[in-house]
Nucleic acid binder design. Structure first.
Lengths: 341, 341
DNA sequence: ATCGAGCCTGGGATCGATCCCAGGCTTGCC
DNA sequence: GGCAAGCCTGGGATCGATCCCAGGCTCGAT
């Protein structure tokens, strides 16, 4: 009855308090808590009643100290939060990984590393053993931080192929094959002058998507058919205008993400080209941007649910001592109005 | 020299290892680590050398257990990550609070509470004593979770006035006075038919901003001058169209946030009204949306740096045992092109 | 009746830090 | 010389859980 005040004033109950209240030893309480064998019905009942009465919960800190596992995992964020949040894929990854981790009983610590002070703090945090492992999103990776973290020996898993040759596990969508599929699909529609709006030069997935596009066109691509964007809608529109200028008779565009595809559609409309009649457009990601535009964008879907589950599996493996490995998840063509009317 | 392999294979050094290496006792090492008095030069030197050689870092877990402080703070997120990230203020708050916390030596745990499974997990996490306190953003508050967390006795600070009469500390911009200032400024420009696009009914800051607007107009506002939006750009545009329809001769708009103001400007342009010549527009927040539009939007700046620092102070106080209190931070008028040419 | 195997329990040791007290050593002052 | 005060150090106790071993008990087989 005094529980509401107890919670505030008095101390939190410990395992010893429960043992006393239930008339058993700490060992027995621990066995009940962890669902181990060799506990009698009566002892289990008494312990469970004591737990219910006191509202006891084991201290996660004490557990971590004894068990050498913090049950915490960090999400390393390598740039200003504002820019990151603008990326629709980030929210999906964060949510998906959080869900998968919850089932495993771990929680997420946000580690910002957008400036030097943050980076130093992040590395110290990891060195202090505050987390069991961490996730990094490849397209924002900062090689310095990653190197410093690797040196601590704490496992790191990358979502997307890491730019460095680091010995880390990673999981990624099959960017190259996805881009090739998208391009081949445009070819199958009879389009022949297929230009592309590529991602920024350095990004690994950007390079892969460009490679897939080139491969599908048998490697013979006029460099004037390629324009580089930065994944933003404005850059997609700009790139489209440049391409229209250089290749007036183009009949299809493959954009390295949906947001740029949306920008391209906007530019095409302003230039008086109809989508899909005059120009077919394919994006990548199947993000919310793909369906919030008219016409809805045909795109390569990344199976983020699989990617997230895999990322968590890979990290769990490494925490348990397995060597790093990587997984490539196939993408899927989703046909919408921007390619077929 | 073997440090790279040591980090991986061998155990992490403990305070006892350092004590042995430096030829002193654990107590002395601890004193050096915590910069306490009564350590001789020579002892300090020896310890520091041993620390540098081994790369020793104290275990944060052991510290937490003994010190009864986790040095961790949670950020409670009461809805789908995707919707939250769309809010430009959220990124600013997260970044600002993270900066302020870093100086205090604490780190941020992300606690998603978008669905029931997440909510349960979040409450258990807090009950386990995994964090010293938490932040919640008022406009996304879920009373159930907040109540359950309050019951644990762990301090909670709200950014924005909480909807419930809960006994929590909070910090907020002065929404009411800010809105009144904005409206009075429009009056000072000679505008007389000033309509408003208000925030959603329930939100506390939305209500306050509407109240300030009404107050500045001496309380006599034709209900047809008020239209409610949901803080999105689309809703701003829609609301503007409705207002134009009902009040064709309006000459100014006060929108409860910048994003809706941007939507309003878009709608005004399409309706053939010039901004600011025909209609002056004022927003709220001074978010990135205010300057990424043409014309740039006159707005009420929220001093997020102050708000964030205050939020961290309030939480620190409560963790140290002080009673809850609240702070209201004044806003500032920022004049841009949407009201003066 | 004796023995062994399986069931159940208690409690000491442990994880890695901090707290704190006792005690040795200097120094200064009467 | 004696004594108090201040400086420095060591190490036992502690935080709250888990691990693990010893030991008691029950039951069935010989």
């Amino acid at each position: 009855m005094a529980s509401s005040t107890d919670g505030h004033r008095g101390k939190r109950p410990t395992i010893t308090d429960i043992a006393t209240a239930a008339g058993v030893s700490r060992g027995t309480v621990s066995r009940v808590l962890n669902n181990e064998r060799w506990v009698s019905e009566s002892a289990r009942d008494a312990v469970e009643r004591a737990i219910a009465e006191t509202g006891y919960r084991p201290s996660s800190t004490a557990r971590s100290l004894r068990g050498r596992r913090s049950h915490r995992v960090a999400f390393l964020i390598n740039e200003g939060v504002d820019r990151l949040f603008a990326d629709p894929n980030f929210a999906v990854l964060l949510q998906g990984i959080s869900d998968a981790l919850r089932e495993r009983g771990s929680s997420i610590v946000l580690l910002m590393a957008g400036n030097q002070a943050e980076r130093d703090h992040a590395v110290e945090f990891v060195e202090d053993g505050a987390v069991d492992g961490l996730f990094v999103i490849s397209w924002h990776q900062d090689p310095e931080v990653v190197a410093r973290i690797e040196r601590t020996g704490i496992p790191l898993v990358s979502a997307g192929e890491p730019p460095s040759a680091a010995e880390v596990s990673w999981v990624s969508a099959d960017d190259k094959e996805g881009a090739a599929l998208a391009t081949r699909y445009l070819l199958s529609l009879g389009r022949r002058r297929i230009v592309t709006i590529a991602g920024p030069d350095r990004g690994p997935s950007g390079d892969q998507r460009l490679a897939g596009y080139t491969e599908a066109l048998s490697g013979e691509v006029d460099p004037r058919w390629i324009e580089v964007g930065d994944y933003s809608q404005a850059s997609g529109a700009e790139a489209m205008l440049a391409l229209l200028d250089r290749v007036p008779d183009l009949d299809a565009v493959f954009a390295a993400n949906d947001v740029m595809a949306a920008g391209a559609i906007e530019a095409l409309r302003q230039a008086g080209r109809r989508v899909p009649e005059d120009v077919a457009v394919v994006g990548f990601d199947d993000s919310t941007a793909a369906t919030s535009v008219v016409p809805a964008i045909t795109t390569m879907r990344q199976h983020f649910d699989v990617i997230c589950k895999t990322a968590v599996e890979l990290l769990t493996e490494r925490i348990d001592g397995s060597p790093p490995r990587h997984v490539v998840v196939p993408t899927e063509l989703v046909i919408r109005e921007s390619t077929s009317s």
